[in-house]
Structures are given as C-alpha cells and as structure tokens.
Design a protein around this nucleic acid. Structure first.
Length: 616
RNA sequence: GCCGCCUUAGCUCAGCUGGUUAGAGCAACUGUUUUGUAAACAGUAGGUCCCCGGUUCGAAUCCGGGAGGCGGCUCCA
C-alpha cells in the first residue's frame, strides 16, 4: 500500500488511530493494543479486549468518545525512553502486544516481520540493528509506542468515520491469535469524507455481482456449490469473445492450441513440485475400479511439459508455443471465495513457451505487447508489478538463476516502456513474474495478466532440446495468461466498464423494436433481423405488446448498444434512426438517418472492431 | 480455514419488543389497449420467511448447529 497521494493526510490519520485507541481504552480499560497504522483512505487499530467483541453497534459510542478527545485539543507530546525502561512500562500497564514489539525493537531495531509489508506497519521504527531508545506519543491519558509523526493536538484531525471491524491475526500470522481490527476512514474536510462515502455508494452500483444479475451474465446455485459460477447465454457470449481475442493475440504470435484432460495422476504434481506446495488445495477424484486417486488439475503447465517431452526437440524448433484456454480447479478455502473474483473453477487463458536462453527477451516482449494490446482494446490501464522472490525458503531453484531471471524480466518491462513497481515475496515458487494489477470497484487490487519466467519446471521434468553442437540443453519455460482467469478478468472488467460493453463484446448488439404488432410492421422488423444476422450481428426482436417507451427502457437497462424502432414511417421511407447507447455515441451518428443496409453494415463493422470507442 | 455481520417472492425491500390466512414495487402470466424513443391500464399467479433441531400455548421474530452470502485476516501455482 502506497500513500503517495495521501502523504499530507498521514499525520492526522495516524493521530486518529491513536484517538480511536484512546477512546476504546476509556470505554474498555482492559483493552490490549496491537498496532495502529495508516492505510488507504484511513487507518485502523488492532485491539484485543478480553471477552468483548466490538460490533458496529458500538461505533456511535466510540465515535462520541473520540469527539470528546478531539474537542479537548489534547497535545501530542513526544517522549523517549530507553528500550528496557519501555519494556517495563509495557509490563506495568499490561500491554503484552506492545511488550512483544518492544522486545523485537530491542533485538533487531525493527518490529517488521520479514513477511509483512513495512508500509502497513508504518507506526514504528525500522532499523537494521538493536536500538537503545524508543519514542512515545502521549495525548491526554493515552500513551503509545510510536514513531510519529502526529498533528499538534487532537483538535487538528480531519473528518472521520469508523467504517468496519474485522478479525485479523496478530502480526499477520495465521498461527497467532486473532484480534479485532477497527477500521476508520478519514479525510481533510467533511466534504471530502462525504465525497468518499458517496463514491463508495456509486461503486456498489457497478459491483460485478450486482451487474451479473442485472445484465443476466452469470449465476451461482447452492446446489452446485460455493465458488462455482455458471454463465448464462449472455455471459457466455461475453466470455467467449474476450477469450477468443486473447487466443488470437497469441495465435498471431506463433502459439498453437493444445488440449489436455482435466484429471491426472498425482505423480505429475509430485514431480512438478506443486504437490508439496499446494497438496491440500487440490481436489481429488477416485477411480471406483482401481481405487486410484487422481487429481483434478489445478494448473496446466505440467501437462504441457508432457506434450513438449513427447519427442526430441531441436534448437531449430524453438520456441515451441502452446496455448490452452481451459478450466482448472482449486479447493480454495471457503472464506477466500467472493463473486467471480475468487472461485473454485477457474478458466485460464494459459500459454507456455519453451525457448532457448537467447530467445527469452524477444518472447517476453511479444507477450507484453499482446497484453498491452488486449488491455488497450478494453480501455483498462493496469499497474505492472515485478514479483520477485524474498529470502524465505518458499522457492525452488538456485538463487543465481533467480537473480538472472529477475533482471531479464525487468529488462523486458523496461524495453516495453511499461511503468512498474517491484515487490519481493510475490513470485511463483518456480520463478519471478510480471503481473498486471487491476483495481475493482471498491479499490481492491487484483492480479490479471501474468508473464512468468521459469527455469525450475523444465529441470524437474528433464525437458531437453538438441543444440547446434548436438548436445542436450534445457529449454526455458515462459508461462503467460493474458486475462489471468476469465472469471477474475470479468469481475474487474465488468466493474471497470460498469457493464457498458463495446459492441464487439456486447452479448446483444442490436435490438429491433416494433411500434405495434401489425403484420407489416412485424414482417419488416423480422426482415431487418434476418439481414443483421447475415452480417453476423447478435440481434433480437421485441415485438411484444408494450409501449415503445417501455421497450426502449428494456434495452437501456440491459445496456444493449444499438436499438432501432420500426413502424409505419420506416416502412414507408426505408430509413432508420438508430438509438445509440449514450456512452457509445460517435460523432454525427445520433442524428444521421441510415438506410437499412448502411445501418446494419456500420454496426457490423463496429462489432468486428476491437478498438474501444467509448470513453468511460 | 479464522473473526464479525447478513439471509423474507425471480429482483429490490416492508413486516414494532414472539400473537390470526406474511405485504409492496418491479419482473412473470392473462385481458384491455396497438402504442413513436427510459416504465399504458386492470387482473392473476408466485413464499417449507435459507435448512435442521430446541425453547414456548404460540417462532419469520428467541437459542443451538449447518449451508450460502458479505467485509476483513490468512492464502492465492
């Protein structure tokens, strides 16, 4: 989490975290405090009150107490203590979490566990060695271990609101006890806060889960199960159009489609290393005859290695590029599921390039260009993250190979002119990644496209090619998914577009609406529909016994890009005035009258074009 | 998986602290109307109040368990 835009809000948000803790301490004197950092749009404080669960019903009470502290304009006073003295203080005031933090400070000069994001724990000192003195801030009767900075006094904070309370593991470790995290949002002025809250309300309207129902795109069923979405006819059109685009972008670059079974012996994953790392997240299926246990595939790369390995390969053959848009299954924990964003049946637009060392850069550049083209066409700007390994033992392969792989990825990203940020600890276990990050309606970031460099998998599967000198070499494997997963892509794309899909993606592109149900009117409309179908358009007719206004409204609600009303006038003149969804409006199009043939041709041309014409 | 909250018709929601046959709008269906660019009028149908168990004379409402959803945490090949 980066605060770049909100640096000036940092001291007051952080001060509000202290004020929150102080208010909680007034209400529940036995409360134990963890950390209270600034996060996007606000702050939180980790709190543990024995036998008490804070609920949203308590927010009024806590906020009232906070206002009291704010009105008192208590000065934030900095003081220093020797670390040993501080530890004694923590013992005295019975703050075991602070005591633990202080002991870490004493030992290593940092409270940041290696697997934690330093920014998120930004309350406390960081350092490389043991330290002597630690700083405290006191306001009124509340004193907290803290690096600062703070505003001068409690009267100088902005507008705030407690937003939610959730469980969180102490110091982010699953094995630690879970305490309560009290979140607040805070802005400089009440107006800014109101604007933020209104934006959150707006965002809910474009939530893909709501639009999925409204636009009739996908459904869940309790009978089918959690995390197992099904796509309606409209949703399936959307899926297939975007998947086809993703496939074409790579088929144009020499990728060939392959096809693999959805189950396999578990030995395949033991060999790849996935079994060790993800064994408990795999679905198992049992043969009733042999009692053999098979695995429902959680990814495709090991299968693809076996196609590569099926015959000898020459250096002349490389790169060999396989492409496979197919579903994988992962037994994600129930609490991790949500909408289309995190599901158990995941469609990957997966590809694997097997290439020589000297082909890596070119290969990656091609894939990055494909990603740029795809996201450009749908009008999405993504953040590019270089995901590196960290110092933990969660990775396979030699560190020197990792170093070289990481710098090659960086070179490719730089060569492509992409802006990026680097993050350790986000790599796959077999190699570093270039991840494209998209943001959902309520500001959460999700990985979509990914390009991954892998020296480990070819080695584990003993993949080879024969080089110019006739000796065996191991190819490099480059994993890539442009959409990432179709489901996750759609979850962010639906929210990005608010369901206003461009013509080429629209499940229904044209609707022909009759003014009445006269035989001639319906016949004319049907003829129009037939012509549009011949041009390959997705077209429907609405000749129901409803008012024209109501039928128009139905197309707007479903966000059908084009509709055309036909009646006596059109039959006589043969001229049609199309109704164009507002966000699609193209210069001159609205008022211009088209003859039937031109109208349909122009919509059909637009439907074939993947360039986004709408500006969102 | 963990913490908290939620679940009433296809959708959005009413239903006061437990008290008869659980309501509305939209959607659906039927009829009247034959309609001119974002909602014609009338009627009909639609509910094991998520499921199972308990408390009670009586449960949509209270308690326990389960399922599903939501927000976090953890995880994410």
């Amino acid at each position: 989490m980066h605060m770049s835009d909100n640096d000036n809000l940092y001291p007051m948000r952080h001060s509000l975290a202290h004020i929150t803790a102080a208010a909680v301490q007034h209400l529940w004197p036995e409360a134990k405090f963890g950390v209270g950092p600034v996060v996007k749009d606000g702050f939180y404080y980790d709190i543990d009150i024995p036998n008490v669960t804070i609920s949203t019903d308590d927010f009024d009470k806590i906020e009232a107490e906070m206002r009291k502290i704010i009105e008192e304009k208590q000065a934030f006073e900095r003081s220093e203590k020797h670390v040993d003295e501080a530890i004694n203080w923590a013992k005295e005031v019975k703050q075991p979490y602070k005591e633990e933090l202080l002991n870490d400070l004493k030992r290593s000069g940092t409270t940041v566990a290696k697997d934690l994001n330093a920014d998120e724990l930004g309350t406390i000192a960081e350092g490389d060695g043991a330290i002597e003195n630690v700083s405290f801030y006191t306001n009124g009767d509340f004193t907290d271990l803290c690096r600062g900075p703070h505003v001068e006094d409690t009267g100088k904070v902005g507008a705030f609101k407690l937003s939610r309370v959730a469980g969180a593991y102490w110091r982010g470790k699953e094995t630690n006890p879970q305490i309560q995290r009290l979140y607040g949002v805070a802005f400089e002025t009440p107006k800014d806060l109101r604007k933020y809250l209104e934006m959150q309300e707006e965002a809910k309207k474009r939530d893909h889960r709501k639009l999925g129902v409204d636009l009739d795109l996908f459904v869940f069923s309790e009978l089918v199960g959690s995390g197992l979405p099904m796509f309606t006819p409209r949703g399936t059109v959307l899926r297939e159009e975007i998947e086809n685009f993703s496939n074409e972008l790579r088929q144009n670059r020499g990728f060939q489609k392959v096809s693999i079974p959805h189950i396999t012996k578990k030995e395949l994953y033991e060999k790849s290393g996935h079994w060790d790392k993800f064994g408990d997240e795999l679905f198992l299926v049992k043969s009733q005859e042999t009692k053999d246990e098979l695995v429902l595939k959680p990814m495709n790369c090991p299968h693809h290695t076996q196609i590569y390995a099926s015959k000898p390969r020459s250096y002349r053959d490389l790169p060999i590029r396989y492409l496979d848009t197919t579903m994988v299954y992962r037994d994600e924990k129930s609490g991790e599921l949500g909408g289309l964003n995190r599901v158990r049946s995941i469609t990957q637009d997966d590809s694997h390039s097997f290439c020589r060392q000297d082909q890596i850069e070119n290969e990656i550049e091609g894939l990055l260009a494909a990603a740029k083209e795809l996201y450009g066409a749908v009008g999405m700007e993504l953040r590019v993250r270089l995901s590196y390994r960290d110092s933990s033992d969660a990775y396979l392969g030699k560190p020197e190979i990792w170093e070289s792989a990481q710098s090659q990825l960086k070179n490719a990203v730089v060569a492509n002119g992409l802006e990026f940020y680097e993050q350790e600890g986000e790599a796959a276990f077999y190699g570093p990644k270039i991840d494209f990050m998209a943001t959902d309606a309520i500001g959460r970031e999700h990985q979509v496209a990914t390009v991954q460099l892998d020296f480990v998998m070819p080695d584990r599967f003993g993949l080879k090619y024969v080089d110019e000198e006739g000796s065996n070499q191991a190819p490099v494997m480059i994993h890539c998914a442009l959409l990432g997963s179709t489901e996750r892509f759609l979850s962010v794309y639906i929210e990005h577009s608010a369901g206003k899909f461009p013509v080429w993606l629209a499940p229904e592109q044209l609707r022909v609406i009759t003014v009445n149900q006269e035989v001639e009117t319906v016949a004319f409309a049907e003829k129009l529909v037939d012509q549009a179908k011949e041009k390959g358009l997705r077209v429907t007719i609405d000749n129901t016994n409803e008012s024209v206004g109501k039928k128009i409204r139905a197309t707007e609600v479903l966000k059908v890009p084009y509709s055309v009303v036909v009646g006596e006038k059109e039959i006589e003149t043969g001229k049609l005035t199309p109704r164009v969804r507002k966000d699609l409006a193209v210069e001159g199009r609205q008022d211009e009258a088209y003859v039937v043939e031109n109208l349909i041709t122009s919509i059909a041309n637009e439907a074939r074009s993947r360039v986004q014409k709408s500006s969102l």
